[in-house]
């Protein structure tokens, strides 16, 4: 699967053999407004891919198209294809509900379920698929350990999730996404509501998780992208206000030797 766009020179994505997700001519709309214009991207397996760019260029919209959350917005439209291991997730036979179990998501604001305990928050996805109690109990420790939260909550799994701090709640949300053992985890500015220490913990965690999962992270914070991402995608708006990808490639190249002028302006802080 070769990547060909008009700005091909600035798009340097990994070889197709490493592809986990491939976006082909993906256009996303809200009603008549184009939020993201024709996008071609390859997202490599078991790597961290960051999407950066100014506010309102459709980073989150693009992310939410990857687990078909975008289409839940009234008036949302999708054109093009998104291949997950070669199969189009927008294909007619694909159940979006099953897809979302393969492609998990962590949101900007920690959103644990307030009426449930810490353990119940982790197992909610498994409850959904009718997993037996024993399996759910095992998943609690498995997921909380991977989310680097186990040691802090092991003695109070029955307490309400809201008793945790913001950073802990976000790691709980990561554990909740992990518990259903997805292949891909989408993160929409997962640390923007957190303090620097909690942010650092989340970033360490992301690096750790990339061994087992493919991670796509949207972030406003360029330093964060530089720290955690193997690949970086820079988006901006064209004259009609539609978001599109300007440049993509290995993070180090994007930050040290950007090929597109707009990327350079953004990462050096001249715009955005």
């Amino acid at each position: 699967m070769s990547i060909t766009t008009t700005a091909a020179s600035a798009i340097r994505m990994p070889p197709a053999s490493e592809a986990h997700l491939v976006l082909e001519g993906l256009t996303l709309r809200y009603g008549a407004r184009v939020a993201v214009a024709r996008t071609d991207l390859t997202i490599p397996r078991h790597r961290v891919t960051a999407i950066i760019g100014p506010s309102g260029v459709g980073k989150s919209t693009l992310l939410r198209a990857l687990n078909r959350l975008h289409e839940l917005v009234p008036g949302a439209g999708v054109e093009g294809r998104v291949l997950l291991d070669g199969d189009d997730i927008y294909g007619p036979e694909v159940d979006p509900i099953l897809l979302r179990r393969r492609v998990g998501m962590v949101f900007q604001q920690p959103n644990p379920l307030a009426t449930r305990s810490i353990a119940q928050n982790v197992t909610i996805g498994l409850e959904l698929v009718g997993a037996p109690r024993r399996e759910r109990m095992m998943a609690v420790e498995w997921a909380l350990r991977r989310a680097a939260l186990w040691d802090e909550v092991r003695d109070r799994l029955d307490q309400p999730a809201t008793s945790l701090s913001g950073g802990q709640q976000q790691r709980l949300c990561i554990a909740r996404a992990l518990a259903v053992r997805p292949e891909v985890i989408l993160m929409d500015e997962p640390a923007s509501a957190l303090d620097p220490i909690a942010t650092a913990r989340i970033e360490d965690l992301i690096a750790e998780l990339a061994r087992e999962f493919t991670i796509v992270i949207v972030t406003h914070n360029m330093q964060q992208a530089a720290r955690v991402a193997d690949f970086t995608v820079f988006m901006t708006q064209n004259e009609d206000g539609a978001g599109h990808v300007v440049e993509a490639g290995p993070t180090r190249e994007i930050f040290t030797a950007p090929r597109d002028r707009r990327t350079e302006d953004y990462i050096t802080g001249r715009v955005g």
Partner: peptide, 15 residues
């Protein structure tokens, strides 16, 4: 009830 709660459930594959 905040919309984020519904999104959380949808993102987990909840009908």
């Amino acid at each position: 009830v905040p919309q984020t709660v519904r999104e959380a459930a949808s993102a987990l594959g909840a009908p």
